[in-house]
Structures are given as structure tokens and as C-alpha cells.
């Protein structure tokens, strides 16, 4: 800016040296220019704080506006105003610079706290009964999630690991409280009454169910026969269910045997080699078993094609104990 000014000054001087040459400028526009200069200066004084703030570029903007004005200045009266503005601006600039140096070295916790509150979203309210003993700069309402908001920002500056949480295995398994059995037995007797199947089979599910029941009975029959012939030898579970000729039938056998166990007609134990063996349970009263009072353990067995082959080989199973229906 200063370089530009000197070139204009030179121009002016040249003009004056010529003596006769004068720039044409009417009074109206001169008055306007002087008015604008005064406005700029008033603005500088009224918005002093704003101009001083390190966050504001208003001082620079003002000087740029003054520059543009100066392009229209040809007479000393206006030039004097320009000089006046410059003095004001320089003073402001000096003060701003010294403040910058103060910002550079001093950390102010109060200002930091203020800025933190702003970040967290404090709601500054007009409170006429504000407590004079209140150290906080202004009464305000800090929202419920204020600290969470700050924390979310803070996470970005840390190399913190998320944490793993679980419930399973955190406490010891204990048998649950056994509830009154009356309700259950009421329902089971209801089922026994309505056991008569409708004559007309409408659903696929029903006929499928009947077939399952038939098969379960058939298999139970075999189990009881084997055991009657040789009551002292428990039957190996795998010997019983495996069909060496068909993996699919083996799976079906396992499925049907699970019903037998579930309904309490047979049980599975582990022999001394920790291998599963199956044996029928003697029925006392008809087909009603006291399901609820028996201790029960759930065991799940699944078999892959590979497993099935391995077992057939290992156990040397040549014939199925459950002949296909």
C-alpha cells in the first residue's frame, strides 16, 4: 500500500510542478469522499474491540476501503482525512500486535473454560437474579449430554481401545428355582384327552407327525427287543443308530431316537470309556411318564458325513441294528 501511495504522491507533485494543471473534481463528490472517510474512522472507534480481536480481519478491511477511497483524493483537505485515518489504524494495529504477543505466550485457564462451555453447548440465559457470588462468568444451562459431547471430540486425540463386554461365563451356573408343577400337569392331561386325531387329515404336518410317531414306536420296539435278549449289556449308541449303508437313514435314526429319550422311554449314559450307551427305561404306569421330576441333562450330538464314515470303519459296523422300514 505504501508503495502505491508514493507513486500517487509523485504524480501529484508532478501535477503541481506543472503549475497550471488541476484535476477536475466537483464539490459534491469531494464532500462524499470526506463523509466516507469520517464514517470509516467512526466505525473504527465504535468497533474497537472487534477490530482488536485476533479473530477479526476488520482492520484490514477498513484499510482496504481507505485505499480505494484514496484513489479519488486529489486535494489536501481529503488527504488530511486520509492521514488521520492512517494514524488511527496504525495505533489499532500496534495494539493488536502487542496483544498477539500476549496470546502467544500466556495460556488463560479462564478463557479455556469459557471456550469449553461454548463447545459443550451452554445455553446462556438472561438471569436478572444472578448470584453475585457465582464464579461462573454467566448463568447458563449446560445440557445433559454436554460432557459426552466433549468426550466424543476428545476420543479423536487418544489411542484408546474399545472394551469387550459379555454376560455368558461371568457368573457360576446354578440350577434355577423349580416352579409349581400343577399348571404343567394340567396342560399335559388336556393334551391326553384330545389325543384323538381328526379323521380327515388336512395338513401335511399332521400326516408327517403320525409317520414320525410310528417310526419312533418301531425303533423303540427294536431297542426293547435287543435289551430283552441281553439285559446286561448296554447298547452302544452309535452301534444302534448308525446305518452303514446310508448316512441319511443314520441321521433319521438319531432324530427318532431323540424322541424316545425325550419322552423318557430310554436313557443315554456314558460307559467307562466315556462313550454313549443307550438303554430302555421300564414303564410302570401306561404311557404317562412323570417327565417333570426326572433329572435331565441335555446332550446334543451332530454327525458329519466324514464322522459317519469314520465310525463305520472304527466300529466295523456291517449291518444296521435298525433295519430300514
Amino acid at each position: 500500500m505504501s508503495s502505491r501511495r508514493s507513486s500517487i504522491d509523485e504524480e501529484h507533485e508532478e501535477n503541481h510542478m506543472d503549475g497550471d494543471f488541476e484535476v477536475e473534481q466537483d464539490d459534491g463528490s469531494r464532500r462524499q469522499i470526506r463523509h466516507q472517510y469520517r464514517e470509516l474512522m467512526q466505525n473504527m472507534q465504535q468497533n474497537r474491540d472487534d477490530m482488536l480481536s485476533s479473530r477479526s480481519n476488520k482492520l484490514t478491511d477498513t484499510l482496504q476501503a481507505a485505499n480505494q477511497l484514496f484513489a479519488e483524493v486529489f486535494k489536501p483537505r481529503e488527504a488530511a482525512l486520509d492521514a488521520q485515518l492512517l494514524v488511527l489504524a496504525t495505533n489499532l494495529g500496534k495494539e493488536k500486535a502487542s496483544q498477539l504477543q500476549a496470546d502467544m505466550t500466556v495460556f488463560d485457564p479462564t478463557s479455556f473454560a469459557e471456550d469449553l462451555l461454548s463447545f459443550m453447548g451452554i445455553n446462556r440465559l438472561e438471569n436478572p437474579d444472578s448470584d453475585s457470588e457465582d464464579e461462573a462468568c454467566a448463568k447458563g444451562y449446560l445440557g445433559a449430554d454436554a460432557w459426552k459431547k466433549l468426550g466424543t471430540e476428545a476420543e479423536k486425540y487418544f489411542k484408546r481401545t474399545p472394551t469387550f463386554h459379555f454376560m455368558l461365563g461371568s457368573f457360576k451356573t446354578e440350577p434355577p428355582i423349580v416352579r409349581q408343577k400343577t399348571d404343567r400337569q394340567k396342560r399335559t392331561s388336556k393334551v391326553a384327552e384330545k389325543k384323538v386325531m381328526p379323521a380327515q387329515l388336512k395338513k401335511m404336518e399332521e400326516s408327517h407327525q403320525e409317520a414320525t410317531e410310528k417310526e419312533v414306536e418301531r425303533i423303540l420296539g427294536f431297542l426293547q427287543t435287543y435289551f430283552r435278549e441281553d439285559p446286561d449289556t448296554p447298547i452302544s449308541f452309535f452301534d444302534f443308530v448308525i446305518d452303514p449303508n446310508s448316512f441319511a437313514r443314520t441321521v433319521e435314526n438319531m432324530f427318532h431316537v431323540s424322541f424316545i429319550i425325550r419322552d423318557g422311554f430310554a436313557r443315554i449314559k456314558l460307559d467307562q470309556d466315556k462313550l454313549p450307551v443307550i438303554e430302555p427305561i421300564n414303564q410302570e404306569s401306561g404311557s404317562q411318564v412323570d417327565i417333570d421330576n426326572q433329572p435331565r441333562y441335555q446332550g446334543v450330538i451332530s454327525l458329519s458325513h466324514q464322522d459317519w464314515k469314520e465310525i463305520v470303519d472304527t466300529f466295523e459296523i456291517t449291518e444296521p441294528m435298525i433295519p430300514p422300514s
Binding site: V300, I301, T314, F315
Partner: peptide, 21 residues
């Protein structure tokens, strides 16, 4: 998922059995 996890049980049992022969 549970069934897949339980396949392990049978393969462990299978290996126990192969020791039997």
C-alpha cells in the same frame, strides 16, 4: 451356529473312539 459349534463335540468323540480299536 450352535450346531456348527457342536460339530466339534462329535469330532473329539470320534477321535476318542479311534483310540479304542
Amino acid at each position: 451356529e450352535t450346531r456348527a459349534g457342536q460339530r466339534k463335540a462329535i469330532s473329539v468323540a470320534a477321535s476318542t473312539r479311534s483310540r479304542r480299536s
